[in-house]
């Protein structure tokens, strides 16, 4: 699925070159559920941007589904994002002027899917996340959890090979956060590949694999089984409250 080899990304800050990613190598297999954690400024967002084809590395090789993408044009990257990747953001990133259904339809518009077909698939995706009856509501009329579910439906509607989530529970209260994480578990069980970025150890613990990133370098944690994962999550977070009190 994902093979990263010796990825380097530098930023120039005040004339000094800072390594956001310092020779990172990483593989994610088909059907994996991987959490990437690290403190802010550790480079996890940069890593996510590169995995998500929103940004390109300065150096190193990145292979996504067998495609070497370093040489891809912005147009090819856009097509790749559209077809291969489903994004889920912390701030939901729904278009406020469109209804839930129209938001979910959006990626299909860029695939030039016909109107009726689009509507059908978007409705189906909303049904899968349990939001069918809110299809005609605008994001402002939805709760945070509903908005995030709508965003998940938008990510899934194109049937992407990779789901990329950036702090998906960051803007949600803990109970809704758990609901969303349960939804991720279901997606994982259904065979989706998930890469989840978080600074929350409790959230990370629900993944199959945890990758820590500090100062642009990665430290891989041991693979944890699903049962242990859940137990750990409850241990760390027994009252369903986030460790950092979000």
């Amino acid at each position: 699925m994902i093979t990263m080899n010796d990825i380097v990304k530098r930023y120039a800050i005040g004339g000094e070159s800072i390594y956001a990613l310092d020779h990172v190598s990483l593989t994610v297999g088909d059907g994996d559920y991987v959490a990437i954690t690290g403190p802010s400024g550790s480079g996890k967002s940069t890593l996510m941007n590169i995995i998500g084809c929103l940004d390109v590395s300065d150096q190193g090789a990145y292979e996504l589904n067998g495609r070497r993408i370093e040489k891809y044009s912005s147009r090819q990257l856009a097509h790749l994002r559209n077809r291969e990747i489903g994004f889920i953001f912390q701030g939901f990133n729904l278009l406020q002027k469109l209804t839930a259904l129209e938001n979910v339809e959006l990626p299909l518009i860029y695939q030039k899917v016909g109107r009726a077909e689009r509507r059908r698939r978007a409705m189906e995706a909303l049904q899968n996340v349990g939001l069918a009856e809110r299809a005609q509501h605008k994001p402002t009329e939805l709760s945070g959890g509903q908005q995030q579910r709508c965003a998940i439906a938008r990510a899934l509607v194109t049937e992407p090979t990779l789901i990329l989530a950036d702090e998906p529970t960051g803007n949600l209260d803990s109970r809704t956060g758990v609901e969303i994480l349960n939804l991720f578990d279901e997606l994982h069980q259904a065979g989706h590949t998930i890469v989840l970025i978080t600074h929350d150890a409790g959230v990370a613990a629900r993944a199959q694999r945890v990758i820590h990133i500090v100062d642009g370098k990665i430290w891989e944690g041991k693979p944890i089984t699903d049962t242990v994962d859940r137990a750990t999550a409850e241990e760390v977070n027994p009252d369903g409250i986030h460790p950092d009190g979000v």
Binding site: G52, L54, S74, R75, A78, H79, R81, N82, R83, F87, N93, L94, L95, L106, P107, Y110, Q111, R154, T158
Partner: peptide
């Protein structure tokens, strides 16, 4: 700008 960012993230090309 944010809308443009979202559209691009989910697959809009420059031409779109």
């Amino acid at each position: 700008t944010r809308e443009i960012g979202i559209r691009k993230a989910i697959g809009a090309t420059r031409a779109n």
